[in-house]
């Protein structure tokens, strides 16, 4: 089972160490972790995708709630989750494959960030699934480098109750 956990934390130095430390210390399986500012500059939102059974996931939320810097922990149910992710992908190619690649990039709706003689870097922003689709689409060519942000999420309406 997978769960999206959204954590609001006090924006303090070291808060990421406290959160990341808890994940390793308690041996949780975290698939992605993304952190960034919120509407309030004193508060940071950290989004985690965690896998495990029901009992473990319940523990994860409670252990996070216990961290002093944590203000609120929300497990966002999948049916209520609005999610998004961003990825940058560099593909390399031989000159004769260039046209093929270019049409694929257009087909997949990717944004071109740069084109070199033998490589291109593209960007995709969307659901985790659309990012996966783009990566799978490019996979037959040589993916030279990739950076994914990890999932961010909000519940429909912005807050859970």
């Amino acid at each position: 089972m997978k769960k999206i956990i959204s954590i609001l934390v006090r924006n303090k130095p070291g808060v990421l160490s406290h959160v990341a430390g808890l994940v390793t210390r308690r041996a949780y399986n975290v698939e992605s972790i993304a952190a960034g500012p919120t509407e309030n500059h004193q508060i940071t939102r950290i989004t985690l995708v965690v896998s495990g059974d029901e009992k473990v996931l319940e523990q994860v939320s409670r252990q996070f709630e216990k961290l002093i810097d944590v203000i609120k922990v929300d497990a966002i149910p999948h049916e209520l989750a609005l999610t998004g992710e961003l990825a940058l992908i560099t593909v390399s190619f031989t000159p004769e494959k260039k046209t093929e690649i270019m049409s694929l990039i257009a087909l997949l709706g990717l944004t071109i960030k740069s084109i070199e003689r033998d490589s291109a870097t593209v960007m995709i922003a969307g659901s985790a699934q659309s990012v996966d689709t783009a990566i799978n689409g490019l996979a037959p060519f040589h993916i030279k480098a990739m950076a994914r942000t990890g999932l961010v999420a909000l519940p429909i309406g912005g807050v859970t109750d």
């Binding site: 130095p13 070291g14 160490s17 406290h18 430390g21 210390r25 002093i68």
Partner: peptide, 15 residues
């Protein structure tokens, strides 16, 4: 500060 994160309730490095 880093060393004591997992073995304290909370900790501070004053800057």
């Amino acid at each position: 500060y880093g060393i004591s994160i997992p073995i304290t309730k909370y900790n501070y490095l004053i800057k």
